[in-house]
Design a binder for these strands. Structure first.
Lengths: 130, 130
DNA sequence: CTGCATCCTTAATGATACTG
DNA sequence: CAGTATCATTAAGGATGCAG
């Protein structure tokens, strides 16, 4: 009954590509992974996503909130307290992005050895030209 | 027996993060998705990944080859003929990246409605300040 | 503390021309 | 055809200061 959706990320003008561009992004992936632990404050996320700047995290969270992946709760306090958590939609994205993180971790040894081999081969090729 | 690897993408200096940065990328995702069909020529990939420039595709493929995800076969012909295909390592990445593409396609309707709601709310907030 | 605004620097991308 | 090289443009990212 359900026919395949007409959306196709491989088509440049398909709206779904704007969504792919957002989620296929290292900051998005790490932010969502951090929020898999549950509801977190801005500063806690920033600590979890080691190396992210305040500006980039604010932008990432704003974009994720706009896309309905993260919800933002601001408490009217001084100093401010703002908490973020994954929405129901965001939780459907949690596992796919976590899988990417796991892939990077489990295959980094293979990747680094491939890099070393490639760089070695390139160096030889360069030397042969001289 | 197998202890958890010491790699952690959430740590800025962990080598696995360089790998995450490469795979959590829209061009990488679409290129790998294109190569899921099998062995393809440069021009065929370029056609499949609609909108990618020749320069960016060449760089993406070179990076993927360096990381051991894609293999490159150049035939000594004129005009040149170069074919690319996923390696065994690359095929382990195929499903996680395909999942991202499917997520973008399946949820774009929800995402777009979230965006509309967010933009509407922002517009109201802006108007209230005047 | 949480952001936003600003300025600045760097990286990514695009357009074009050119070579094997 | 499959690149590479160059240049121009744009986007991403970092640093700082400041307001709520």
């Amino acid at each position: 009954m359900d026919e395949q959706p007409p959306w196709n990320v491989m088509v440049a003008t398909c709206p779904s590509r704007t969504s792919l561009a957002r989620i296929a992004n290292k900051w998005t992936a790490m932010t969502v992974i951090a929020l898999s632990e549950g509801r977190l404050r801005f500063g806690e996320i920033r600590k979890a996503v080691d190396g992210i700047s305040g500006k980039v995290l604010a932008e990432t969270l704003r974009d994720l909130e706009r896309d309905g992946i993260v919800s933002r709760t601001a408490y009217d306090q001084m100093p401010p307290r703002v908490e973020y958590e994954l929405t129901a939609l965001g939780r459907t994205l949690q596992e796919p992005l976590a899988a990417l993180g796991r892939w990077a971790e489990t295959h980094i040894v293979e990747v680094e050895s491939a890099r070393a081999a490639y760089d070695e081969k390139s160096a030889q090729a360069d030397a042969a030209m001289s």
